[in-house]
Design a protein around this nucleic acid. Structure first.
Lengths: 248, 248
DNA sequence: TAGTGGTCTAGACCACCGG
DNA sequence: CGGTGGTCTAGACCACTAT
């Protein structure tokens, strides 16, 4: 990245220069976390570019999680980037996070019983009727991940009735059914946020999500549940520790 | 997503409609994998919108990996989405992929010996001089992931001299040094592609990358290497299997 | 209602690719 | 060289938020 005598990038598009200058200013503390940036019109005037050029710069910063843009209000510097480190060996995410001083809620958005034959790619569960739970996990009021969980409808049909935002599914299964979940396998991938993801998680379209697909069994190895979790990439990461004892 | 009588989305921005229509056309096979889409000007005329509106639609499709846009040539439908499934328990990625009929190369882009004291966040290795290897892994000529690997410079200083594009680092350490690597821990996260990532991997700025940070030890548990791998999210995923025997 | 970001247009010029 | 995508401008109007 070459620069001229005044420290301005050379040979880069104008929007890229604006992006890095804003990024540097934020990193240098010229704008505090949570603070509002100048309006797009002001930035355009300050950088002597068109407003669209500013917008391209802001869009990239938003996708990277550096700022958060809200329609009608402005663009705000993100809170200090914090990524929650989750142990992949532990079935319950919510239980792990509850150990902290933050407020964790998991709302049940939808639930339905679906015949296995209706599913193009049914989960590997030994049941004909499957209970589908769509939940949204939030931390301090900020949505962090969307889950879709599949269970046996016959065995666990009562779960939606007793669900509360404080529910941890693993804890519920243990408490109400006496069942201990054991992780069987996990798949980790990175995907761009779909329009639905973007709306539910409050991230820009295309923002990186960390996606987990996995299965849990009972202690005997009988498949009990299958999970599909889409988490904000700037908030969640998974740790696999091969040295430590693999307990819960 | 409501639609009017002709099946056109309603209440969505024009660029979003163009995006979904193109996406559907591709999914329906109107454009074969690898085929070139009409030019932006043609699409603008066909959809009766400005070229910028078409460009916003194409940009989202490119970030999602549906198409690949090349300056001066056009936009091309991506080859059938294929994601390589890598076992997280196995230290060597390259060795895993070599089992397939594809051509895997790993080019050594740069290497340097760095005093540990020069690093703001040094890897957990018991050495004062560290060898840094920057490599690029490609599959059938397409760049899939960039690695930065740290090793003891004293023990492994000869590695760069014997490197070839066919090298697997794990295999090399075993062959030339008689050392068996054992995975110690792994961290998986999702990040947007930086300008450097985008240039090296041929993806759009901000495209989702699957990032792995990890450490390996010798069989006795002594730290040997630390890895930082940034892979194309549309090409790589990691599998953690808790049921299978954890060998290899 | 005023101020903010979100969308869209028309037009221009530049940078890259291929023959 | 002609054709393609990449960047940028000026200007307009819409949608959302706060007061």
């Amino acid at each position: 990245m070459s620069e001229d005598s005044s420290g301005v990038e050379v040979g880069q598009p104008r929007w890229h220069q604006v992006m890095t200058e804003l990024s540097s200013a934020i990193a240098a503390g010229s704008f505090a976390p949570g603070e509002r940036l100048p309006t797009e019109a002001e930035l355009a005037e300050r950088f002597k570019v068109n407003r669209l050029t500013v917008r391209q710069a802001l869009a990239e910063l938003a996708r990277a999680g550096t700022i958060k843009t809200v329609h009608g209000r402005g663009s705000f510097v993100a809170e200090l980037p914090y990524r929650f480190r989750l142990r992949a060996t532990t079935p319950s995410i919510v239980a792990q996070m509850r150990g902290t001083s933050t407020v964790i809620t998991q709302d049940l958005l939808r639930h339905a019983v679906v015949p296995r034959s209706d599913l193009p790619d049914p989960p590997a569960l030994p049941d004909d009727e499957l209970l589908r739970l769509d939940t949204l996990m939030s931390v301090d009021g900020e949505a962090w991940s969307r889950d879709t969980t599949w269970l046996s409808a016959k065995r666990f049909g009562g779960v939606p009735a007793v669900w509360t935002p404080q529910t941890s599914l693993t804890g519920l299964l243990l408490g109400a059914y006496g069942i201990v979940l054991r992780r069987s396998w996990r798949r980790h991938s990175a995907e761009p946020a779909s329009p639905q993801d973007a709306a539910a998680l409050g991230v820009p379209l295309g923002a990186p999500l960390l996606v987990l697909v996995g299965a849990n069994t009972d202690p005997a190895g009988v498949p009990l549940s299958q999970v599909h979790r889409r988490s904000r990439g700037d908030r969640i990461e998974y740790v696999v520790d091969f040295d430590a004892d693999e307990d819960v």
